[in-house]
């Protein structure tokens, strides 16, 4: 997910009996669904893991502006242009809410930005895939936002107060994103031969990268266990991936599109689809920087940051001058 591959820094899950009184009180609050607030005592591992997870989520939102922003100037109608712009703007907003949530843990937005640009912090692998045609904008909304929502809805109940409140706000705004994506896909799927081909091609290219968004199977991961005990991860990667496939396949059928998986079949016993795993080698390659547009994405963020330095400094300098003039006058 947006927080794929975030490793918690805990060393395996301790039982309540093994904990010092402070940590025990903390864990009991988490267990009782009482939110942890910024000034409450928290284990250092919890704080560090949260910074990484919320930071990665925030970075994913703002890097995620780029593939869709790529089509704002080429959207086919005025209405589509406005919808897409409003949507990508929402993503900037979501990034902002999340950075603010992370800031309550004692890290600044600038520090997190530097960590993104230096490669110390990651963003979701999905945004290292290009948007080549207009149908990709539909596919991103439908599949990528669909997968994101699947992860974000449960995170509204996450244990850390500011994170949970940011997720509530994000989920409220996000619901239009997936719908507008599907709406684009419907128009394409019901359109000309060329549009149908475009829609199918977009599904072909985005299907497996979307499945990768949930991260590799975490059945035996110590890190996942700790994150789940802390309630900063609510469901397992496989659980969410299954849910996503079960929800998405009928939607693809409705569009008359074919999910690019020959092995896809309904499994009556488990009440869900059997489906092919994505190519995890590709996933790790993309995460390491070998995706088709990794370089472009980071370069765009770096350019915005570097080119914007004089603006941030200029406006701050003016504000400080005004402040001292006011003080002098008083």
């Amino acid at each position: 997910m947006y927080a794929q591959m975030v490793k918690s820094t805990g060393k395996g899950v301790k039982t309540l009996d093994e904990m010092e009184p402070e940590e025990r009180a903390f864990q009991e609050k988490v267990d009782a669904d009482i939110r942890i607030e910024p000034r409450d005592w928290m284990p250092e591992g919890y704080r560090k893991t949260l910074i990484r997870q919320i930071g990665q989520h925030a970075h994913s939102e703002i890097v995620g502006q780029l593939p869709e922003g790529n089509w704002i100037t080429r959207a086919p109608t005025l209405e589509r242009k406005m919808i897409l712009l409003a949507k990508v703007q929402d993503e900037a907003g979501h990034g902002l809410y999340l950075y603010c949530a992370a800031e309550t843990l004692g890290v600044s937005r600038d520090e997190m930005t530097e960590m993104l640009l230096s490669g110390k912090m990651k963003y979701s692998s999905i945004f290292n895939y290009p948007t080549l045609t207009w149908a990709d904008i539909g596919a991103v909304g439908w599949l990528v936002d669909g997968a994101a929502i699947m992860n974000q809805v449960p995170l509204q109940r996450t244990s850390y107060g500011p994170y949970s409140r940011a997720m509530v706000r994000i989920c409220k705004e996000e619901s239009f994103h997936q719908r507008q994506g599907y709406d684009i896909m419907m128009k394409m799927a019901q359109g000309s031969e060329a549009q149908k081909r475009m829609a199918q091609d977009a599904l072909n290219r985005f299907w497996y990268p979307s499945l990768m968004m949930f991260g590799p199977s975490d059945a035996n991961s110590v890190h996942s266990e700790q994150s789940m005990a802390w309630k900063i991860k609510i469901n397992s990667n496989d659980e969410l991936r299954q849910k996503f496939v079960d929800q998405t396949v009928p939607q693809a059928e409705y569009l008359g599109l074919t999910v690019p998986d020959d092995t896809l079949a309904w499994n009556e016993d488990k009440g869900g689809y059997d489906f092919a795993e994505p190519d995890w080698d590709e996933f790790f390659d993309v995460l390491k920087g070998a995706g088709p547009v990794n370089h472009d994405r980071l370069e765009a963020r770096r350019k915005a940051w570097d080119d914007g330095a004089w603006v941030r400094e200029g406006l701050l300098a003016h504000a400080e001058k005004k402040r001292s003039a006011k003080v002098a006058a008083e």
Binding site: Q65, L85, A92, L96, A300, A304, W305, A309
Partner: peptide, 15 residues
């Protein structure tokens, strides 16, 4: 102006 989306000096300005 829409060309700026995702590229502004600071998130608040982007929005």
């Amino acid at each position: 102006v829409s060309e700026w989306c995702g590229h502004a000096p600071v998130l608040e300005e982007d929005i």
